[in-house]
């Protein structure tokens, strides 16, 4: 178990590094080496650490532990073929963690990030639409059933293409430097995690590496199906590079634009779901 978690975490941090590298190359910069995020995380672990005097101490540390716990739970859920609805739940709890991270310190910057995290709750809606559409196709929300369905009927990517777009949007909205990452925009210093420094920052970074890996792995598992470990890793890498391209060429949207684009996407998929449910 622990070996899966640690390797997924390291792979996720490597993916973050590749993400930065690709963005830099697209923008004509040399960019950091791809293991930069790994070193970054390790560096933070060696920094002097304490809890700020103004912080709500239990919450300040608790969110870090919870961030690690929910994404390790999500990874184990994926490996055991558990319920996609539960993955959705864990993803929503991640929103609470972002919010708690921002509110716990008492700083204005992180609080702004937390408020933006609440208004960007619209980014959860595409995931719900995606889950609903998958349920219509496979009649089950268990990942093992979805995989079995794909072994028989081929990848869901083609018939459930709108759901794939929705999940892609969800991953895009959680990725660093993306068009929807308003909660960690630079005008807020680092947004909701501005006040988490030292070990807390390093561990949050590690948890987010795990999160990136889990979200990309979910995409591959749910829309492409069981294709063996090497091909899965390759698919994850390709997916990450496409995301980096999107991030490199799009500016960060303003909070209102970000929310309206996500809501419109969900609306379109909802119309498609109703169309499928009623007419097909």
């Amino acid at each position: 178990m622990i070996e899966y978690l640690l390797s997924a975490m390291i792979l996720g941090l490597l993916l973050h590094g590749i993400h930065r590298k690709v963005i830099a190359r697209v923008q004509g910069r040399p960019g950091p080496p791809i293991w930069q995020e790994l070193l970054h995380t390790l560096k933070f672990l060696f920094k002097e650490t304490w809890i700020p005097k103004t912080a709500s101490q239990g919450l300040y540390v608790g969110v870090v532990a919870l961030a690690l716990a929910i994404w390790s739970a999500a990874l184990i859920l994926l490996l055991t073929g558990g319920s996609l609805l539960l993955l959705f739940a864990l993803y929503l709890i991640h929103k609470i963690i972002e919010h708690g991270t921002g509110l716990s310190s008492g700083s204005q910057y992180s609080k702004f990030g937390a408020i933006r995290s609440v208004i960007s709750a619209a980014s959860e809606l595409p995931l719900l639409a995606s889950v609903a559409l998958l349920y219509l196709f496979t009649g089950s929300l268990m990942i093992s059933d979805i995989e079995a369905y794909q072994v028989i009927n081929g990848p869901l990517l083609i018939p459930a293409f709108p759901a794939a777009i929705a999940l892609y949007m969800v991953i895009l909205s959680k990725i660093h430097y993306g068009p929807f990452s308003i909660i960690e925009a630079k005008e807020l210093v680092s947004g909701y995690w501005t006040e988490h420094f030292g070990v807390w920052r390093g561990l949050l970074n590690a948890a987010f590496g795990l999160k990136t890996f889990v979200l990309l792995y979910t995409f591959v598992m749910v829309f492409i199906g069981p294709i063996g470990l090497p091909l899965t890793l390759l698919a994850i890498l390709i997916l990450m590079i496409t995301l980096s391209f999107v991030c490199a060429v799009t500016p960060m949207l303003s909070p209102y634009d970000s929310v309206s684009i996500q809501t419109v996407t969900t609306g379109l998929i909802a119309i498609y779901i109703i169309y499928l449910g009623v007419f097909a």
């Binding site: 005097k53 103004t54 912080a55 709500s56 101490q57 239990g58 919450l59 300040y60 608790g62 919870l66 739970a73 558990g82 319920s83 609805l85 539960l86 739940a89 864990l90 709890i93 609470i96 509110l103 716990s104 310190s105 008492g106 700083s107 204005q108 609080k111």
Partner: peptide, 28 residues
């Protein structure tokens, strides 16, 4: 598995609300 997970998180956050001290807001 689903409701038990939700239950666990509800307990964790209730405990956090019970035992942690509130933050001190910074005012400019």
């Amino acid at each position: 598995v689903y409701t038990a997970t939700l239950f666990t998180f509800a307990i964790i956050f209730t405990l956090l609300a019970t035992f942690s001290i509130p933050e001190k807001q910074m005012d400019i």
